[in-house]
Design a protein around this nucleic acid. Structure first.
Lengths: 208, 208
DNA sequence: TCCTTTTTGTATCGATCAATACATAAATAA
DNA sequence: TTATTTATGTATTGATCGATACAAAAAGGA
């Protein structure tokens, strides 16, 4: 098809992965084009021809993160037998994932560009959208739990989803601050230990 | 005493407050010296003579934040009759504080420079230290709760403190993403609703 | 008054930022 | 071969970054 012209001498996927790693580690602002071209092993014109701009490259890197390193966290969400197990599993996987020895600590989507003002709007909005997306997925899983009877009728799934994502986002901050895997696991266990009383307490109507 | 020389024509405190507000809003990286001199109403030489550098100005701004806008959150921590009330109050105050109409949303200490790599080390370390400081204060309050009998013997105060700060840090992310005060309050209520079962569940030894 | 000290405003520093111009190289199509 | 298309390496663009040099201005001390 489009095999006309000189073929590129680098792997687009490998270069993208290198970009993802440094963006994940240093964030969008603190990663310069000089950093990117160095770790990706190519010159600026090749980068721009292949990815368009720094912001577009970042968004592609975030997408790759969501498909690879960040995907495992959410793998068991829909397969867990109950909402409670789904959430506890989600947080335990997060604790593990955020403290891998060979990866930057914490979640790229939470840590790599938190400011909503003054930054590249496409970057801020893209990350915000991904955070919201996961929260919606979690809320849907909780609603399924209500429908299947493992969560009380009238459970405020919107509130519980916000609560769980808050814990998970906070775990990213802790991870970046150097918290141990054990500490993050303890946080997940705290959530699990209080779960039944918690969901009973935030229901809007009394449960039988 | 040192009233020799031409007196400065600006209020150091007012200029510092202006710097705090824009740092809080845009973060350390996304705030330029041009931004600072504009909102502070002074020229670069005056800024450097008064504050030393951008990083030192930022650290002073964070200190001001801790003494003013961010102080109210922790006001009731030591005065609350029980650890449970102290934590619930802490999170409710956070929900209010993070959604003030006339202030940037969320906590400056959590949001204004999350990367630990690639940024100004003094800035990253200063913020990390402040986060740890508050977590230690919270842990001490929990240990007091154990000593005073309103928390079970053997409560893992280290884990619970990490859990609560994770929730609070996550609330900052939510606030920056546009979550309503009501949503943040609901998160605080989730924590409170599960509290008793949670502290009972993470104790290291069985409680009587 | 004259000297010293400190602040002020203007103008600018070298470094780095993200992004390109340009000519050459390497492939396909005719 | 010749023309076309795409990628590459070198060099550099204008803009912005954080930080200063410099001289005039405004105070106290002698």
């Amino acid at each position: 098809m489009s095999s006309r012209g000189r073929p590129r001498t680098f792997s687009r996927e490998e270069a993208l992965r290198s970009a993802m790693e440094i963006f994940w580690d240093k964030g969008f602002d603190n990663t310069s084009l000089a950093d990117l071209t160095r770790v990706m092993g190519l010159n600026p014109p090749s980068l721009y021809a292949a990815f368009g701009s720094k912001a577009k490259l970042f968004l592609e890197a975030v997408d790759l993160y969501g498909r690879t390193d960040g995907a495992g966290i959410w793998e068991f969400l829909d397969n867990a037998p109950t909402a409670k197990e789904a959430v506890h599993d989600l947080l335990k996987r997060s604790a593990e994932n955020f403290t891998q020895w060979d990866e930057p600590r914490g979640c790229m989507v939470v840590l790599s560009a938190p400011q909503m003002e003054g930054g590249e709007p496409a970057v801020c909005d893209g990350l915000k959208e991904r955070r919201l997306e996961k929260q919606v997925a979690l809320q849907s899983r909780l609603e399924r739990g209500v429908a299947e009877g493992d969560l009380p009728e009238g459970t405020d799934c919107d509130a519980v989803a916000a609560y769980v994502t808050a814990i998970q986002h906070g775990m990213s901050i802790h991870a970046r601050d150097g918290a141990s895997r054990q500490t993050l696991m303890a946080i997940a266990d705290c959530c699990a230990a209080g779960w039944d009383a918690m969901v009973a307490g935030v229901t809007t109507k009394a449960q039988g």
